[in-house]
Simulated assay, not measured.
Amino acid sequence: MRFKEDFNKKKGLSVVLVFLFSLMLSVIFVGEGLAEAKDEVKAPEKKILELELEGISYEIEHSRYISDMGYIIYIDQERYELIEHNSTERIQSKDRPEHLPEVYMEIWREETEPKVFSNKLENKLKDTHGDTVKVEVVNSPVDGIRLSGGSFDTFWEYYYLVDGPQNDSFVIKQRIPGGESGYFEGMCPVGI
Rank of each mutant, 00 (worst) to 15 (best):
F3R: 14
E5D: 15
F19Y: 15
L20G: 10
F21A: 10
F21P: 04
L23Y: 14
L25F: 01
S26W: 06
S26A: 13
I28S: 12
F29R: 14
E32V: 02
E32M: 10
E32Y: 10
G33P: 12
A37S: 15
K38G: 12
K42F: 15
K42Q: 14
K42Y: 15
E45N: 10
E45M: 07
E45G: 06
E45Q: 09
E50M: 10
E52Y: 06
E54C: 07
I56L: 05
I56E: 11
E59A: 02
I60E: 05
E61G: 00
E61A: 00
E61I: 01
E61N: 02
E61P: 01
R64Q: 04
G70R: 12
G70N: 11
I73A: 13
I73C: 04
I75H: 01
R79M: 03
L82T: 13
I83W: 09
I83E: 08
E84G: 05
S87A: 02
S87F: 03
T88L: 06
E89K: 06
R90Y: 03
I91R: 00
S93P: 11
R96S: 04
P97T: 07
W108H: 04
R109T: 03
E110L: 01
E110C: 04
E111D: 01
T112A: 03
P114V: 13
V116D: 02
L121T: 06
L121C: 02
E122D: 08
K124M: 08
K124W: 00
D127Y: 10
D131G: 00
T132A: 00
V133E: 09
V133P: 03
K134S: 06
E136Y: 00
E136I: 04
N139Q: 04
V142K: 00
D143W: 02
R146T: 09
L147D: 04
G150E: 09
D153A: 14
D153F: 03
T154C: 00
E157I: 01
Y158A: 03
Y158V: 03
Y158N: 04
L161I: 05
L161Y: 03
V162Y: 01
D163M: 06
D168C: 08
S169T: 13
S169G: 08
I172M: 14
I172T: 09
I172S: 08
K173T: 04
I176H: 02
P177H: 07
G179H: 13
S181L: 12
S181W: 13
G182L: 07
Y183D: 10
F184A: 02
E185W: 13
E185R: 15
G186M: 08
G186W: 05
C188A: 15
C188T: 15
P189H: 05
V190M: 11
V190C: 11
G191C: 07
